[in-house]
Nucleic acid binder design. Structure first.
Length: 327
DNA sequence: TCCGGCAA
DNA sequence: TTGCCGGAT
């Protein structure tokens, strides 16, 4: 049952970080942050990132430790946030309440429309990324002058869209194989791990298996996606063969006497997701590192020693790229 | 979440 | 080839 089945079909190769110099990647913020959240929580004592009020801001530690990787390789990140999560307004409480109500309405609407799958997924994502985490992350990224985009729905879909149509954006950044189904021309994976990233190539994948985008999505649905279980007995090989033979998902389902709940809706989630072109990117970054330090350490009482290395790396890389312009 | 081993 | 389980992370 799974998304990882796509890995066996996808054209993926390791790419040295150096080759990404000067490029721009639209990062699925939730996917990226979650990796750092789990490692921070796992390896760091919780008093480091918990304020006197008991608010946990491990995300700030994660960001400070994760961002240098981008800066050091002159790879510009654009953080793309999931929609359905609140923005900090003047009256915080009021804004939160309104947002929650709007979100409840969305859930209700989604359910009424028989789109329980989509609702469930938004719900799962929103639960993990709390409002505090979202707000404080945005603020810290603002201080560090990292461009950010608010997706109308899923950050992943928005990132893939930007990689597809925005000339300034070269890649989507996410570990999720869904990016392939979303048509991201090139997806960078493993931006959070030690070694070099992987690049996943959409066109090359289609050509390798002689598939259209729609057919690739259908193969994915047969194997199973985040929105459906997949058909028993169908892995990547069998699904590929079946789609070739019958042309599309409906052909296969008819031939097998199988049914996928909301199949047409799931297809649309990949082929025509809810995304926007209404955003501005200022890619000339001039981070205010002192302000960022102050924000994290003083405002959120995060222990300084845990962060100093990260800030130092950011500082060094900013100086470095500054010098590069003269060489 | 990812990977290897293993049964069917 | 698929699906499941255990172990490492």
């Amino acid at each position: 049952m799974g998304n990882a089945d796509l890995r066996q079909l996808a054209v993926i190769e390791e790419v040295p970080f150096d080759e990404l110099e000067g490029d721009v990647v639209a990062v699925d913020a939730h996917n990226w942050l979650y990796k750092y959240l789990t490692t921070t929580v796992q390896w760091t004592s919780d008093d480091v990132y918990t304020t006197g009020d008991g608010i946990e801001v491990a995300n700030l530690v994660g960001i400070v430790q994760g961002l240098p990787k981008f800066f050091e390789h002159d790879l510009t990140p654009v953080f793309v946030w999931d929609g359905g999560v609140t923005e900090l307004k003047d009256d915080e409480v009021e804004a939160r309440r309104e947002q929650r109500e709007r979100y409840e309405e969305q859930l209700e609407e989604a359910r009424e429309a028989g789109e329980a799958i989509e609702a469930a997924r938004l719900e799962a994502r929103t639960q993990r990324l709390t409002e505090t985490i979202h707000e404080t992350s945005r603020e810290l990224l603002n201080l560090l002058d990292v461009p950010q985009v608010e997706a109308p729905a899923e950050g992943e879909a928005q990132a893939a869209h930007m990689a597809r149509v925005d000339d300034d954006v070269d890649y989507a950044g996410s570990d999720d194989y869904d990016c392939l189904l979303l048509g991201s021309p090139v997806t960078l994976r493993q931006l959070t791990s030690k070694g070099d990233p992987e690049r996943m190539d959409f066109q090359a994948t289609l050509e390798k298996h002689d598939l259209t985008w729609e057919q690739l999505v259908d193969v994915g649905i047969l194997c199973g996606t985040d929105f459906n279980e997949g058909i028993t007995g169908f892995g990547p090989k069998t699904a590929l063969k079946a789609i070739r033979e019958h042309g599309d998902l409906w052909g296969v389902l008819d031939a097998e006497g199988e049914h996928v709940e909301y199949a047409d809706r799931i297809r649309e989630l990949f082929l025509n997701p809810d995304v926007t072109d209404d955003y501005d990117l200022d890619l000339d970054s001039s981070p205010d590192i002192d302000a960022a330090r102050e924000y994290v350490i003083e405002e959120w009482e995060v222990a300084a020693d845990e962060l100093e290395r990260g800030f130092a790396r950011i500082e060094d890389s900013v100086v470095q790229t500054g010098l590069d312009q003269w060489t």
